[in-house]
Nucleic acid binder design. Structure first.
Length: 906
DNA sequence: ATGCCCAATAGCTCTTTGACGCCC
DNA sequence: CGGGCGTCTTTGAGCTATTGGGCA
């Protein structure tokens, strides 16, 4: 009987089986190829998801090939027909599995690694922009009239316009090539062909600006894999059967190139580079019809991923691998996610448009008026999309009346651009956003909108210069609260960026002379100091001493702000600018946003241990609720909890808030207090109601103890003045022996046997006894260690003795009863065995002779010279040949024949 | 299509101070 | 007889973050 698990996929049934039944023949035969053909086999990638499914979704049985190959038709093959209806319940049932802590940790790890890789890639491109050869080549292409920009004393954004126009007209974005090159080579070939990926073109623009001696950064949006694990959902699984491994691995930019066809620097793979595998159009012009078909094929191929194995899947373009929405393959790759109505609509329209305009393709391509000269789209779009883009250029409403599904993709998501420092902007100068790819200058506020339109997120915008990097997300993101939860822990991120930020500020951080005089080195020193302070605070922050991660982060952000000392470098001015943006974020319009907003709070979304103090100022209103600064939110604790923090509630303070206790708790409390109603409420106090803990001072060598005769040592602050905590094992005995007053130190609780059990570590004693106890403890420990060593050695000796005795006894028994042929024992042992036996004169009685031997060894009195007879030789142990090892108290006796025997003197 | 609000719920946090039998 | 030690068993209520559905 073959037992086979057949996974019944609800979706498949509901779609394909109009009768909602599956029939199969029951058989006891085992045949080859049972599951060949169109059997729903469980690919390795499926099995992971399978495990999580309800067992009720699995049927036991065996399926003949025929039945399976025609699974869409009802069949009965000469025997039992098993028929079952797919109840609507089974389809409807949704088991929503949430990510476990482990999965979250893993995805966080992948997110971090991805970030680091993308940082590395950005730095590589940045350093390629400094290539003198590339810069010189760019300059040689530049018309002489544009060289004047170098003479402008106070550079303004406006002055950059002709330069950007020229670049935009001469360098175009095309589909990625088939191979990944190192940044230097990639830039060189882009320069040569005057077209390349958006990343390369943007980097070239940076190189050009640098060649003109401008202060420029290469800015990249790090399109990193999601921080949150993607929990596989039933409907999701049924759509994408080829889903690999669940969770994070299928979502976004993968840094692992499974198929290994990217020969160069796979760790630096980014959305842009992966695009190269997408099968996007790689060359401009004539062959567009064929290529357009290819794109279509790709898009539809990727819809059905069921047969894709893990390896291929890993190399497959996935959602965020697509550099931007201008690539159709990008949309195809989006099949990883449940398709949205708009996506399907877009694909259909694209297909229609393709067929309708295919004839016009070559004309359209040739006609430069029609082709969107904004490099992003010109060479890689299927014709329909190009037309769309041309239409979209003028206005946001498509002249062709196409739906917003396409409209939203009017231009590609800007992922790479430059920032040029314009000293003529503002009073102090300003970093100006320059997107040469899309010919946009000073359009920082447009970035967020454009990115949002392409359903991308603006989580990390990093500016690269001087082999360093700086996070400038704040400049482009106005609604920080939306991306904050998608970003990695700020402490970690800032620690990673700290050294890079330093490099970046060295490269770009000129002194702004309109401010107080200060030398650059001093300023950099200040910055370094600030960075170091951040670094210094890291280990403590990471310890998370009793504080939640969130609290630590909040503390950190406050600390970070305080650390920002003023210095007039470009970098520090920018820091201030970004900080100002951070602190002047517009009020969100929805209430939910206030739940975890860094800056603002509304009373409604405070949790039960929080309160507004002081209750003001009111910054605005949201749905009628007053909005307060987050700094007004204070955390409340019970008296006991404040004690742990080393604080005590001031006398006569009324609780800032009282909470109703659960019936159980209040009952317990009432029982203890014998006061009904007393335990009904839990009194909470704020930090402003507390003062440093005043514990009774230790007097006369007596440690002040609590009602349980112990001291709760939550932290050093909880120690009564004049006492010390000796966190040493077995120190209690020492204190007892010395008759010094002490209290067991309770350091916390642990859950054992379903209840919390206090954990004691060491003792608390008056400070004056510390040295005496430590001295005695040291002596005691030495004695204990020596005693333990002695005991161990005695035990070892005893065990060796037992072992040897056993061997001897065994050998003797073998000699007596086992034909004397045993070869088991070594010659030495045999010899000594025989000799001892002979000496005792009890050869026949093995037990007795064993006893003799024991006596002999135990007796241990050296008689000199000793003689032990053997069959053919009598050992003579001369005193001269004796050796005594004092350390192990072992005496070794030797016979002239080479035989030796060891005794331990007790 | 999007954003907001509400309800449901999975997972996390906070709670927190034995009893008993055996052996030396 | 009393003190030391090992074993028993493995909370659970409440809060919060997250999600899906309904609605504007």
């Amino acid at each position: 009987m073959t037992v086979t698990y057949v996974h019944v996929i609800p979706q498949l049934e509901s779609e394909s089986e109009k009768n909602s039944k599956l029939c199969f023949n029951r058989t006891d035969r085992v045949e080859d190829g049972y599951f060949s053909g169109n059997v729903i086999t469980n690919t390795p990638s499926e099995s992971g998801a399978r495990d999580g499914l309800d067992e009720s979704e699995w049927e036991e049985g065996s399926l003949p090939t025929e039945a399976l190959t025609k699974s869409n038709e009802e069949q009965t093959i000469g025997g039992v027909t098993v028929e079952f209806d797919v109840t609507p319940d089974s389809v409807k049932k949704k088991s929503i599995r949430r990510a476990t802590a482990e999965e979250k940790e893993l995805s966080e790890l992948v997110h971090k690694v991805n970030l680091l890789c993308l940082l590395g890639r950005g730095r590589s491109f940045d350093s390629a922009c400094n290539d003198p050869l590339i810069q010189a080549s760019l300059l040689s292409l530049l018309p002489a009239r544009l060289l004047k920009i170098t003479e402008v004393p106070k550079l303004t954004a406006k002055a950059l316009a002709p330069l950007v126009d020229w670049f935009h007209n001469n360098f175009h974005v095309r589909g990625p090539g088939s191979t990944e090159k190192p940044p230097h080579l990639a830039l060189a070939s882009t320069l040569e062909a005057q077209e390349g990926t958006a990343e390369e073109v943007a980097a070239l623009s940076v190189a050009l600006f640098r060649a003109l001696n401008l202060t420029v950064r290469f800015v990249a949006t790090l399109d990193v894999v999601s921080l949150k694990p993607e929990v596989d959902r039933p409907e999701y699984n049924s759509q994408v059967t080829g889903k690999v491994g669940g969770g994070i691995f299928n979502s976004s930019t993968l840094m692992v190139s499974g198929s290994g066809h990217q020969s160069v620097s796979p760790p630096l793979t980014t959305p842009a580079s992966d695009e190269k595998d997408d099968g996007c159009l790689t060359s401009a012009g004539g062959k567009s019809r064929v290529k357009a078909r290819k794109v279509l094929e790709n898009s539809f191929e990727s819809k059905d991923m069921s047969g894709v194995n893990l390896k291929d899947r890993m190399a497959e373009p996935s959602t965020s691998k697509c550099q931007d929405a201008d690539s159709h393959a990008c949309l195809a790759a989006k099949s990883d996610r449940p398709k949205r109505k708009g996506d399907l609509e877009f694909e259909m329209q694209l297909e229609m448009a393709l067929s309708a305009t295919a004839i016009e393709n070559s004309k359209a391509i040739m006609n430069s008026d029609l082709v969107d000269v904004r490099g992003t789209n010109s060479k890689q779009f299927p014709p329909a999309k190009k037309m769309k883009v041309v239409g979209a250029e003028g206005s946001s409403v498509s002249p062709h009346g196409m739906s917003t599904a396409i409209g939203s993709r009017k231009i590609g998501a800007p992922l790479y651009w430059a920032e040029v420092y314009c000293s003529g902007e503002n009073l102090t100068g300003k970093w100006v956003h320059v997107d040469a790819v899309n010919a946009i200058i000073d359009g920082e506020q447009k970035v967020e909108v454009a990115v949002a339109a392409c359903r991308k997120s603006l989580r990390y915008v990093v500016a690269f210069a001087g082999n360093g990097a700086k996070d400038v997300t704040r400049r482009y993101c106005t609604r920080w609260y939306k991306i904050e939860s998608q970003r990695i822990n700020a402490i970690w991120w800032d620690a990673v960026l700290a050294p890079l930020k330093d490099l970046e500020s060295r490269a770009t951080g000129g002194v702004v002379h309109s401010h107080q005089e200060a030398s650059t080195t001093e300023k950099i020193g200040t910055l370094e100091g600030a960075d170091n302070q951040i670094k210094d605070c890291l280990p403590d922050s990471f310890l998370m001493n009793g504080k939640s991660k969130k609290e630590n982060c909040e503390d950190y952000s406050v600390q970070k702000f305080v650390n920002n000392s003023f210095s007039a470098t470009r970098s520090s001015l920018e820091d201030m600018e970004l900080e100002t943006r951070a602190l002047t974020e517009p009020l969100p319009t929805n209430q939910q946003a206030y739940r975890n907003h860094q800056l603002y709070a509304i009373e409604r979304w405070l949790n039960k241990y929080q309160i507004l103090h002081p209750k003001g100022p009111i910054l605005g209103f949201c749905s009628g609720h007053p909005v307060y600064p987050r700094t007004c939110v204070q955390t409340l604790h019970t008296k006991e909890r404040w004690m742990r923090e080393g604080l005590q509630v001031k006398a006569d303070e009324l609780p800032a808030k009282t909470l109703k206790r659960s019936p159980k708790q209040s009952k317990e409390q009432a029982g203890e207090d014998d006061e009904i109603g007393e335990g009904d409420h839990l009194a909470l106090f704020g930090k402003w109601q507390t003062e440093p803990l005043c514990l009774p001072h230790a007097v006369g060598g007596i440690v002040p103890k609590n009602e349980r005769g112990q001291v709760d040592v939550w932290s050093e602050k909880c120690l009564p003045p004049g006492t010390v905590h000796l966190r040493l094992p077995r120190v209690t005995l020492v204190a007892k022996r010395l008759e010094i007053d002490f209290a067991p130190a309770m350091v916390g609780f642990e859950f054992r046997n379903g209840r919390s059990v206090p954990v004691f570590e060491g003792i608390v004693v008056c400070a004056e006894f510390k040295d005496a106890i430590l001295e005695a403890y040291e002596e005691e420990e030495e004695r204990r260690v020596a005693e333990e060593k002695r005991r161990n050695e005695a035990q070892a000796l005893s065990r060796w003795y037992q072992l040897l005795s056993s061997i001897i006894t065994r050998q003797r028994l073998n000699n007596c009863y086992g034909n004397g042929t045993s070869q088991e024992a070594s010659v030495g042992i045999q010899k000594s065995d025989d000799t001892l036996s002979a000496e005792a004169g009890c050869k026949e009685d093995s037990r007795k002779s064993g006893g003799c031997h024991q006596d002999k060894l135990k007796d241990n009195q050296p008689t000199s010279p000793q003689s032990v007879p053997t069959e053919d030789h009598e050992h003579v142990f001369l005193l001269d040949d004796e050796m005594f090892d004092e350390e192990s108290s072992t005496r070794t006796k030797r016979c002239k024949c080479g035989f030796s025997i060891q005794f331990e003197e007790l």
